[in-house]
Structures are given as C-alpha cells and as structure tokens.
Design a binder for these strands. Structure first.
Length: 679
DNA sequence: GAATGTACAGTTTTT
DNA sequence: CTGTACATTC
C-alpha cells in the first residue's frame, strides 16, 4: 500500500512556474510581463508604458521571488509615495500566503528614516531625532536668518530671497548633488547677487539642524547616503541584507536616490527598476530622467524589458496619446498597443468662448454623464495648475454636483495637529527648538522674545540636553521666569509634560495625546479657534490613529512622513469622496485613471505654461509635453480636450488665446471638434 | 497683537 | 489686476 501525500508548503523547484502560492504566473500575465516576472536575478530595466500593468508586474515579481523561496527580509521595495507602497504590499499579500512583514517596502524617505533610526549615533544624532516638515524648516530658517549678521533693516535686505526660495534652493542642491553656486546660477539667477549670504544661511541652517537633533526630508536621503558611504561595515551589512532591490517610478528618482540605490545594490546588482520615461514630470524637484535613460551605462549587463500593452484606454484615446508624446526627442521609443475594442467615442476637442463658458460646458456635460448612469467618481477634471480649477469649482457648486479636489491643507499639516505633536516631539527630543518655540508661543503674552528666553533657559538646563528621559519636568521648569499673563498656563504646561513620561520612558502615543488635550490644548483651542468643535474632532481622530502605535518614535515618524493626502485618517471615512467628481492637477493624477477625463485650459501659455515657453528651454518644454501625455493617458473611455478662446481676466493683457501647441501634434482625424453654442 | 501699508508674484509639490 | 506675505506702526 502506498499513499501519495503532497505538502502544500513544499518548496518549489527553481524555474518552475508555480510555487507555494499556486499562482499560475504564465496565465495571469501577458508574455512581456511574464518575462519580467521570471527574469533571472541581475540588473533589469523595465520600461512600462502607461496603463500597462506596471504594478501588477512588480507585485507578481515580488510574489515570484517569494515563491522561489526567497526570504522576505531580503527584499527591498522602493516606491515614490506612501500610497503606492501600501497598495503594492497589500497586493503582494493578496497574491501569496506567506508572511511579508519582514519585507522592507516604502518610500525612499521612510526607508532612510528606518535605517537612520538604527544608526543615528554614527552621524552625531540620537535615535529620537525630529523630522522637520516644510513648516518647521521655514520656522528654523527664519530663526537662522534673524540671528545672522546679514544686512538687516536697510533697503538692501528688502529683496533678500524669501525663506520659501531658500528652502527650494537648498533642497534642489541636496537632491541633485549640485553646489549651491550652480543651483543659484542656473535655476535662481534672480537671487544670484545674494549668493554669499545664501551660502552663509545654508551653513547655519545645516549646523542648526544638527544642534537641534533634527533632520529635514532631504536629510533622510542625504544622511542615509552619507552613513552608508562612510561606514564600510554598515554598507556591507545592508548590501548583504538586501538581495533584491526593486524600484518603482524610477524615472522620477533624483541623484541622491539613485546613488542610494546603487550603493545598496553593490556588486551583486540584483536590481529591478520600473518606470516610464514618458511620464517623468518631477524634474523641478530634482528628478533626473537621465537615471532611467542611461541605466545601461551604469549597468551594462542590464536586461531591458518593455511592457507596451495598454489595458486601460480605448484605442481612440490611446492613439491620441501615442501621437501626443511622439514629437519629444528625448525618450525610449515605444508604441503602446490597445487590447480594448475600438468603436468608442472619438476624443472631443472643444473650443469655448471664454473660461466661464468652459466651466459651464464641463459642468453641464458632467451632469449629463451622471444622468446617463455614470458614477461621479468615474469622472475627473484635470488641469495644469490649481488656479485653473476656480471657475469649474464654482460652476459645480452652483449645480450641486459633488466634487473633491486634491489641494489645500493636509491633515497632518494643520496648525492644531502640529501643535499637539510639537509637545510630544519636545518630550522625545528636547533639543527640538522649533517644537519648543511652537509650544511656548501658544502661551498668552508670549511672543518671539519670551519664547527665545525660555528656550535659552531650557537648553541651558539638564532637561534641554536630552541626555536621558527625565522623571518630571515641572520642578525645574516652574523656576523659569515667565510673564505674569502666562503664569497659569505655563504651570499647566509643565504638569502636562510630566504626564508624558512614565517610569523613565515615554507614555503611549494615545495617552500622551489625551493628557495634552485635557491638560492644555483643549483650553487653548477654545480660546484660539472659532471652529473649536471641528478641530477637537481632528485631535480625537489623531488619538484613534495613535492607538495603533506603542512606540512614540514610530508614531512621530509616521506623522511626518505621511503628512500627505494618503495619510489622512479621515480620508477613508469620508464616504462622499467615493461619490464625487475629482478635480486634480495633472501631477496629482499620476497613476490614477477614470472612465471620463476632461482636460481643461488647453491654451498656449496656460498649458504649456507660459513661463516655460518664454525661457525656450527645450527640456522643460518636453516635460510639459510629458505632462500632457500623463493627462490624456488617464482616460479609459472618454476624453474631452477643452480650451477657452479668450481670457478676459488675463493680467498679461493677452486677450485672445490660441489652442495649445500640443494639439498640433494630434492629427485631425483623431479628434472630433465640438462646436458648442449656448442657445 | 491689530491695523495699515507696500512689494511682488501670478506652475507643478512629495517626503 | 489682485491676493498674499511681510514689514512697519501704533
């Protein structure tokens, strides 16, 4: 007698199509995708056209590796946004039964953060370093400028670049590894006369960050790179750890990110990068398309794959997309093929009299489509710049068409959220000057001056050094001199801080938030904001979110790193979002798709942008065209290209608008012109 | 701190 | 032209 018993968990033989997961890769993927997924280890470049199943391919590749018996802990998956990271890991989990929690996946910044927390001491930081967001950066920069012996008061100081400009300069310099001199000379010539002062601000800013045990977003990349460059042992540790590195949206990586990848990959070269050069639209923040274009120079043995079958759009839309990008000189040649059937609506080209008429047309057509049974969430209106959505917002509001818009303050960046997290940050990292001052300024009668004095007192005493977690704060802090007006709330504050530490450690995040709300912040909110109720709900929301964390460091890092739309804990609960028309900038529409897309303001000077046309910079112009390409490739079924023929409100005095020159590249027969009249 | 005046921009924005 | 951001002033 014999019995055949087959272990479900048995390791698959290498090379076989099926592994433990039982996924039939060959059946689930098309030939091009399958070739990528089962490719041998080694450098690989995947050129993935719009709508070609890029995420699908990448997630299957990860599943494949795991199926081959690879240890999840040896895989690093880098994405551009948190949302993409989350989506990716969820889909891998759905594909494969194995536990993937050991797999490292996330944005470059979050991975940098993760590495830096472990080795912060090697760089002269502590592991509880603070992360500065844009707001914090601004605050610190202002402080730094105030303290520098720059020419103040006179007419000369009037035109000293604003902090926003300085932050942009520094950030671009960090991300592209170019000197401040070069960045200013080529990208910000209007402030070139201040070059020495700018460099001096930069030096002080860098020093101050270190002194305050704080890193900005750029540091999360740059310092990680530095750490691994300088410490051979750590470098080889991580090189050995990550046997497979996969990178999504490679066309949008900048120099630092690219260097970081190369360094992590080391000689083993088990690197798979996926991207679409035609969708590179972030050069203005340091992305270098050359990374993807000359990948083969750095990795001569790289296998190059193209996945060009488009599952998203009807052929009518896809042909137009192909035509739209064709005139660009700098690109990998590819031709997307549609699998969907033809016979759909030919993309509409709609000239309108003026912007408000354009808005009326868009709104009316949207109403019609919804009347025909389309869900509002199947429809999007895309534009080059947010201000171009104004008329449409008004028109949709007037007609009571539900819409949502991808702009405005993000949840974690709102003042009240930042206020409460400043208190936590201060306890965790007592050298965090920005947070200290934010907290101090909440006290009545305390302005810049008093805040500064308090900071001095604080940083002079043991509490402010942050050597160890103190048992309590009040005994020392109550001895500080505060204005009479602030006396009571200062006391409250001190006792509240006491509650944030327990037994020589930090309280749990949600408990901290509770103490802060009860101790000081509720009163403050009542006094300072007219929409108290609303803000209180936000804090409660935050407390709920905090329940998911035991480690306060992790909680804080998450707050900073997810300070974006996708981290909004409210988001998932707002059901209306699923039932509304999307208004979005093209940048934010990347990676998304809708049945119906309206692309508005397609007039020369609006899109392509007038400034880009003025400079005559070919590279920038081609990026505009890629943006156009990204926009049109979002549409699944219907595409409307609209433009106003006049712009009465133009401040440049240009009254007549000409159709966007991008439309010149589209053969007439690919669109149908709609002649819209109001009567 | 509120009120008033002045200069200047007027793309995109994640982490 | 107009809203914003900053500085100055009381």
């Amino acid at each position: 007698m014999a019995r055949e018993y087959r272990m479900k968990s048995a390791r698959s033989k290498p090379g076989s199509s099926q592994g433990i997961s039982g996924i039939d890769y060959e059946a689930e993927l098309n030939a091009q995708q399958y070739a990528v997924v089962r490719s041998k280890p080694g450098p690989a470049l995947v050129i993935a056209g719009a709508g070609s199943g890029k995420t699908r391919t990448l997630t299957h590749r990860v599943a494949w590796l795991l199926d081959q018996g690879e240890d999840p802990g040896k895989i690093l998956l880098l994405t551009f946004t948190n949302k993409a990271a989350r989506e990716m890991i969820e889909r891998v989990e759905q594909l494969i039964p194995s536990d993937v929690s050991a797999l490292w996946s996330g944005t470059f910044h979050s991975i940098g953060n993760r590495i830096l927390r472990r080795h912060a001491e090697d760089l002269g930081y502590t592991r509880s370093f603070s992360i500065l967001d844009r707001d914090d950066q601004k605050a610190m920069m202002k402080q730094v400028i105030k303290e520098l012996p720059l020419d103040t008061g006179g007419a000369a100081s009037k035109r000293f670049p604003k902090v926003d400009v300085l932050i942009s300069i520094f950030s671009l310099s960090e991300n592209t590894c170019e000197s401040i001199d070069d960045v200013v000379e080529y990208q910000f010539p209007q402030v070139a006369r201040w070059i020495e002062e700018i460099k001096s601000v930069h030096r002080s800013y860098q020093a101050r960050k270190k002194q305050n045990n704080s890193m900005d977003f750029d540091d999360l990349l740059v310092q990680t790179l530095k750490l691994l460059q300088q410490h051979d042992d750590l470098r080889s540790l991580y090189q050995r750890k990550f046997r497979h590195v996969l990178v999504d949206e490679y066309q949008d990586t900048n120099r630092v990110q690219c260097d970081l990848i190369d360094l992590l990959v080391g000689d083993r070269q088990c690197l798979m990068v996926v991207g679409d050069d035609a969708q590179s639209i972030y050069s203005w923040r340091g992305a270098d398309m050359d990374n993807i274009l000359s990948f083969h120079k750095k990795y001569p043995d790289a296998e190059v794959f193209k996945i060009e079958t488009n599952y998203r759009s009807v052929p009518e839309v896809l042909e137009l997309s192909n035509a739209a990008i064709r005139p660009n000189r700098v690109q990998y040649e590819k031709e997307l093929r549609a699998v969907r059937d033809g016979g759909a609506m030919v993309p509409a080209l709609v000239p309108l009299d003026d912007p408000s008429f354009q808005a009326e047309f868009v709104a009316e057509r949207i109403e019609e489509l919804i009347g025909e049974g389309l869900e509002p969430s199947d429809i999007a209106v895309l534009y080059r710049a947010h201000y171009q959505s104004m008329e449409i917002q008004m028109e949709l509001t007037r007609r009571k068409v539900p819409f949502q818009i991808t702009s405005g303050l993000r949840f974690f960046e709102q003042a009240h959220i930042k206020d409460v997290s400043a208190l936590i940050r201060l306890v965790v990292n007592p050298r965090d000057e920005v947070s200290f001052k934010r907290v101090a300024l909440m006290l009545p009668g305390v302005g810049d001056k008093t805040a500064d004095n308090l900071w001095r007192a604080w940083s002079a005493c043991e509490l402010g050094q942050g050597i160890s977690v103190p048992e309590s704060f009040s005994p020392i802090m109550l001895t500080f001199r505060v204005p009479a007006k602030a006396k009571d709330s200062w006391q409250q504050l001190c006792y509240t801080l006491d509650e944030l530490v327990v037994d020589g450690g930090f309280a749990r995040p949600s408990d901290m938030l509770f103490s802060i709300l009860e101790g000081v912040y509720d009163d403050y909110m009542r006094a300072s904001f007219d929409n108290y109720e609303h803000r209180k709900q936000d804090i409660e929301q935050l407390m709920e979110y905090g329940e998911g964390f035991d480690d306060v460091l992790e909680f804080l890092a998450q707050l900073s790193l997810m300070s974006s739309v996708d981290g909004d804990p409210q988001k998932n609960q707002r059901k209306e979002d699923d039932e509304s028309v999307m208004l979005s900038s093209i940048h934010q529409a990347k990676g998304l798709e809708w049945k119906v897309v309206f692309l508005v303001w397609l007039a020369d000077g609006m899109f392509p942008n007038g400034r880009v046309l003025e400079t005559g910079d070919e590279q920038m112009f081609e990026e505009e065209r890629r943006l156009f390409y990204v926009a049109v490739t979002r549409a699944k079924d219907q595409l409307y290209l609209t433009y106003p023929m006049t712009n009465p409100k133009s401040y440049t005095g240009e009254y007549m608008m000409r159709p966007s020159r991008f439309l010149d590249a589209i053969p007439d027969e690919m669109t149908e012109e709609w002649k819209v009249s109001s009567w």
